[in-house]
Design a binder for these strands. Structure first.
Lengths: 157, 157
DNA sequence: ATAATTCCTGACTAAATTAGTCGGGAATTA
DNA sequence: TAATTCCCGACTAATTTAGTCAGGAATTAT
């Protein structure tokens, strides 16, 4: 498993969408501005997230992206895997043929590390943050600051 | 925290040393050959591991590297931090000023992720693998295969 | 219809990181 | 004295990350 800023970008963007789920689709332009990520780079990431089945695109005015399934069924591991590809940290990809057909010295270490890491990251679901009052507070502030969703009544409620 | 093959190289090399602790210092040339990592790249990594206080170099014939402290006091987190620098995944470095002086939407997420990840990785100590019979078996096999430590009586025992 | 919005696609460039190379020097042991 | 090994810095190559650009396709609003 690779864990870099690329994955952070993806998770940040997904969080943004999850936090505005009840408002409707969120545009990449909005995410780009509010989270400070280049629009075209976001498009690359979302191409992967779409292929990974995590989001759906809605075209046209009022469109944007929305989650393809409920926020409590999308984990951080899902997101990172969608953009970073690799799941495990073993050299051999879990096959156990890292050293002349045999397991290398550190195969066990990486295998167990991968398992535990995956278990941990897949335990964190997006909805855990959606339902937190301190986060909701921040969302409201930021939306006002950037004048987001002014034309959507749900945003105020 | 960055988690890439660079960190894997470092942990693999450290494991190799830990697994031969009772034999004596291990040379980078040996690690290079057995673990399939370029010698000069290892030297770069070990410059950092030395600065991080994890290993000590021993010069001259019969020299090599050995752990600077007992294997049960060296964690995977220690190693990764030494070569990868960064500990946390927040954009702001834990300061909480990621978005115009305020915390960004995902600050909490990354902060908590960093904490948990660190707690997990620092819970894995090198000695956990040194004391496992299945690993010891592998070590012995590999050492014979590469003709390692033939001149050192401890290696056979 | 038309125009505006937004996703969507592919090719391209730039920066950063990772990985590896090279040449040499310093300390230690035999 | 010679061999071994760490140690150091500069350099190059490959890969990944990040960003740019130019356009096209679907949808909505006018």
């Amino acid at each position: 498993m690779r864990l870099s800023t690329k994955g952070r970008y993806a998770v940040t963007a997904m969080m943004d969408i999850a936090l505005h789920e009840r408002v409707g689709p969120v545009t990449l332009a909005d995410i780009s501005q509010c989270q400070g990520i280049s629009l075209s780079y976001l498009e690359q990431l979302f191409a992967k997230l779409r292929k990974g089945g995590l989001v759906e695109g809605v075209r046209g005015p009022g469109g944007g992206y929305r989650l393809a399934r409920p926020a409590d069924q999308i984990s951080v591991a899902d997101i990172i895997q969608s953009v970073d590809e690799k799941l495990d940290m073993t050299k051999c990809g879990g096959k156990g043929n890292c050293s002349q057909g045999e397991k290398c010295l550190t195969h066990q270490l990486w295998f167990e590390l991968s398992c535990n890491l995956y278990r941990f990251l897949s335990g964190i679901k997006l909805d855990q943050y959606v339902n937190r009052p301190d986060i909701s507070e921040l969302v409201k502030k930021q939306d006002i600051q950037y004048g987001r969703f002014l034309n959507r009544p749900q945003a105020i409620a």
